[in-house]
């Protein structure tokens, strides 16, 4: 994923596996990113994402859009969107479509 975004011309900061919500938010804020993407395979998405969004809000960084990936059951997708996740990617989302979907999110937000 990281490499395909880089190949699409984006700057990618990959923090690796098993990071806490605090760690990813600190990295996102320090690097001043447009998008924070988090893949969750362990089933904790319904507790991890609200925490990430709250931490971004606390850091005054609500303009960073959060996108989710990993193993997310279909029925949890609307719940995540309601919590403020901008987009949920699934195993079926074509790899090549993701850079454009991310660009769309950034342009919808408008310039900072």
């Amino acid at each position: 994923m990281a490499r395909s975004l880089r190949d699409a011309g984006m700057d990618v900061i990959y923090t690796g596996l098993h990071r806490t919500p605090e760690e990813v938010v600190i990295a996102a804020v320090q690097e001043d990113v447009d998008i924070l993407g988090v893949s969750v395979l362990s089933g904790v998405h319904l507790t991890a994402f609200p925490l990430i969004i709250k931490l971004l809000r606390d850091a005054d960084a609500e303009d960073i859009a959060v996108v989710a990936g990993g193993l997310i059951p279909d029925e949890d997708v609307p719940k995540l969107l309601e919590m403020g996740v901008a987009r949920v990617f699934s195993q079926e989302t074509p790899l090549d479509s993701i850079p454009q979907l991310i660009r769309d999110l950034v342009s919808a937000r408008g310039p900072r």
Binding site: H18, T20, S42, G43, V44, T47, A48
Partner: peptide
């Protein structure tokens, strides 16, 4: 797997899940 007790703050949300 990572060596944390269930009541460690890092375990929040993960206990008994996977």
């Amino acid at each position: 797997l990572m060596g944390y007790d269930s009541d460690d703050p890092r375990s929040f949300g993960e206990v008994g899940r996977e």
